[in-house]
């Protein structure tokens, strides 16, 4: 397994006039043998990044390196980056047996020469690996449940002998009682095979369960990136904190939450339009520690924050808790490191 690195990756859709930038200068590394969780709301560009990583979308700028070599130069033969899709009902060809689907991904030629018999054995082994009976290779996807299909999709990705797997929202189309089995499988694969994985999800609880580090994406940019425990325990970017606060928790009723009107206004703000991203910090129209709530923070409106902060947080005022309107900077220093999770 090898490291996958995104360097200043930019992906644009459409033409110059009506197009928009879905992924904007993303730097991200998926280290060898680790699972990196990528979270963000719909429209944040996380699926676009996934499709760019497997070559389904052309890059507008930057490059993607696999083990230090640009990905685009490897054509033909094996595809070292594989993908598992969100909807298991759309990602398997209904006219192909699941065995054929898995076998199709296997490299055509391999050192030693793979004969047909070997392929069949390999398919059986892969199906077994993902928890399906190997004698089911000859059946069609229509006969499988959603959870089982997702296992086949994972087996298909493994068949290519990939260096990295991109998993795009692989649990969100499944019923709650089945999501756990797929998450368990992902963990097992990482533990047993050392699979590197970019695990994309909007569900922080699921990401927390499998990923060793978390990257948070907002409007085409990574706004925070760090080890899972640290990001969850000590989020630096206000958007990360907002996401964390929004994860439903049966032990907290909604009434317990803070109800300060201006902060609430920020929470109720509409998600920004990716076609017209805000100037400066892209999060400022929704930010509870930004110019909307606190006076004197015009820097957020005008200047794009760099990433030279803890967790590479792209924020001018990282680590600051949501506070009542106070003069700018009053609570800055005290809370920078100290604010731990409840």
């Amino acid at each position: 397994m090898t490291e996958l690195r995104f360097e200043d990756v930019t992906v644009r859709y459409g033409n110059r006039r009506s197009g928009f930038t879905a992924v904007d200068g993303v730097h991200l590394t998926v280290p060898a043998g680790e699972i990196v969780g990528l979270v963000g709301e719909s429209g944040s560009g996380k699926s676009t990044l996934a499709r760019a990583a497997v070559g389904l979308l052309p890059l507008h700028g930057g490059r993607i390196l696999l083990g230090g070599k640009p990905l685009r130069q490897r054509t033909g033969g094996t595809r070292p980056v594989q993908m598992v899709f969100q909807d298991p009902y759309a990602s398997l060809d209904p006219r192909m047996t699941i065995g054929a689907s898995v076998a199709e991904t296997m490299p055509r030629r391999r050192a030693g020469g793979t004969r047909r018999i070997d392929r069949r054995q390999e398919v059986s082994a892969l199906l077994e690996r993902v928890g399906l009976a190997p004698d089911r290779a000859a059946i069609y996807p229509a006969q499988l449940s959603g959870g089982q299909r997702q296992r086949v999709a994972i087996a298909r990705a493994l068949a290519a002998g990939p260096e990295v797997i991109v998993a795009d929202e692989i649990t969100s189309a499944l019923d709650v009682s089945v999501q756990g089995t797929v998450l368990n499988l992902v963990r097992d694969l990482q533990r047993d095979l050392g699979t590197s994985m970019l695990f994309i999800s909007h569900n922080l609880a699921a990401v927390r369960y499998v990923a060793s580090s978390i990257a948070v994406m907002y409007l085409g940019r990574i706004v925070e990136h760090g080890p899972t425990e640290q990001v969850l325990a000590d989020p630096q970017h206000p958007y990360t904190r907002d996401l964390l606060a929004a994860v439903p928790d049966a032990r907290h009723t909604l009434a317990d939450e803070e109800d300060e009107p201006t902060v609430r206004a920020a929470h109720d703000a509409e998600p920004a339009d990716p076609h017209h991203p805000p100037t400066g910090c892209r999060y400022h129209p929704r930010c509870p520690v930004g110019p909307l709530i606190l006076t004197g923070r015009d820097v957020c409106r005008t200047t794009d924050p760099g990433r030279q902060r803890p967790h590479h947080a792209a924020c001018h005022f990282p680590g600051e808790p949501v506070a009542l309107p106070t003069p700018a900077g009053a609570s800055l220093r005290t809370h920078e490191q100290g604010d731990t999770a409840p």
């Binding site: 389904l56 899709f85 759309a90 990602s91 060809d93 192909m96 199709e104 290519a160």
Partner: peptide
């Protein structure tokens, strides 16, 4: 998505047409 998956797997255009598109 299954066509995307086949593309990722390196399946060529002609095979994509005959194996995945035409049967469906």
């Amino acid at each position: 998505d299954y066509v995307a998956a086949a593309r990722i797997a390196g399946v060529g255009r002609i095979r994509l047409l005959t194996r995945h598109v035409l049967p469906n």
